[in-house]
Amino acid sequence: MIRRVRPVRVRDAAAACALGAVLTACGAPDAPHAVRPAPSAASAAPSGPPTLAPGPTGLTPVFKNGPRTQGRTVALTFDADMTADQGARAAAGERFDNPELIATLRTLKVPATVFMTGRWADEYPAQARSIGRDPLFEIANHSYSHYSFTGNCYGLPTVSADRMRSDVERAYAAFRKAGVPDAMPYFRFPGGCYDRQALKALAATGVTAVQWDVVSGDAFATDADAVARQVLEGVRPGSVVVMHCTRSAAPATERAVRQIVPELRKQGYRFVKVSQLIGATRGRQ
């Protein structure tokens, strides 16, 4: 379930960042990232996707945005949200996918990172497979259940600490079952809510937690112009923009993207995937 956008209080002061919450063609085309994902979430080998090193206390590292001084790059990310208990709503006809959005990204040749729940992959395996096998995109982990990893996170059900790791691993299993060959070792907390306990619980998976610095405001929005304005006003070099690939809960996203992409290209921005921003950041460490 996606909630309306409002600020999130991140409980881990050491990793605190200004978050928005969400819940659940001009110029030359941007070339897809050449590096293919590693086969395992725990893989951090140099030949695999770039990840950030754990902190000195061994906690899962948190990534918010890329370098501000290495050119005008921006990563559009899309959360494919579906909570574990929403099967009945899907069976009744509610659409948690957005194939028109994916088609528009392909038409505009925009690389993007899709943070997908395992439940979404179970519901739409053909779409998950198509996205995961398209070099324009990369699939990352948004949990299996879309339950919160902290308490008091936009009314989401909560996953217990002893099941956090298995929830993430179950999502990767769902991707493999759907035919996604190489999901990335990146994880986005449902609602953007996390604390020290959650970062500790996921450390063994080897993922880098990915947040954002630009909130699109597309959750439940019907005004595509307003969504586009919010993104265009917030983007800076190295930004990570959070949007949604959930038709019923973010119906204006595809129309907003058709405004955002040409305008940012006109401003000299180049669209990249999260892996490229993390790689650029790691290169400066």
Rank of each mutant, 00 (worst) to 15 (best):
D12Y: 04
K109W: 01
G217S: 05
Y144R: 11
A204T: 15
T60R: 00
I139A: 00
T77K: 01
A88K: 11
L52I: 06
R196I: 00
A21K: 06
F189I: 01
P181K: 05
M116K: 00
G151N: 12
T158E: 15
P61M: 08
T83V: 11
D97Q: 09
A204E: 14
M1G: 11
M82H: 04
A14E: 13
Q127W: 06
Q127N: 04
R282H: 04
G206F: 05
G279S: 09
A161S: 13
R4M: 09
D30T: 06
D79V: 09
Y124K: 02
P157C: 05
V10S: 07
E123Q: 13
V10T: 14
W120Y: 12
L136W: 04
G238I: 11
F115H: 01
G20R: 01
R3S: 14
S145Y: 02
S160Q: 13
V62S: 00
A204G: 15
K177H: 13
D195Q: 02
R89E: 15
T150N: 05
A28Q: 13
L277M: 06
P50S: 09
A126W: 07
T60V: 07
C245V: 07
L19V: 13
K64Q: 11
R11S: 12
G87R: 08
R95P: 05
A221K: 00
M1E: 12
C153E: 01
A112S: 06
P251N: 04
D167I: 03
Y186V: 04
C17N: 10
S148T: 10
G71P: 07
A249K: 05
S130K: 11
P50H: 06
A174C: 07
A228V: 08
W120T: 04
A34D: 14
G27T: 07
S148D: 12
M116F: 01
L19G: 00
V8A: 03
F96A: 07
Y186D: 04
R72N: 12
A28L: 13
A183E: 04
T73F: 09
Q230C: 08
K200I: 08
R284P: 01
F189S: 14
V22E: 08
P49V: 09
G238H: 07
V274Y: 04
E100T: 11
H244A: 10
N65T: 10
G87N: 10
V241P: 00
F137H: 02
A226Q: 12
R6N: 12
R106I: 09
A21M: 13
Y124N: 01
F189Q: 05
H33K: 00
Q285M: 15
M243P: 00
F271Y: 05
T107G: 11
A28E: 15
Q259T: 14
S143W: 00
V261R: 02
Q211H: 11
R196V: 03
A203C: 05
A221E: 13
A183T: 09
G151P: 02
A13C: 09
T69V: 10
T51V: 15
A226K: 11
V240I: 14
A121F: 04
R11K: 12
R6C: 12
L136E: 04
E123N: 05
F220L: 13
N152F: 09
F220Y: 13
I131E: 03
A80H: 10
S216C: 10
P237N: 08
E138K: 01
M184R: 14
F96H: 06
C26V: 14
A201P: 02
H244Y: 07
W212L: 11
Q267I: 05
G132N: 08
R133L: 08
G234A: 09
V8R: 02
L52W: 03
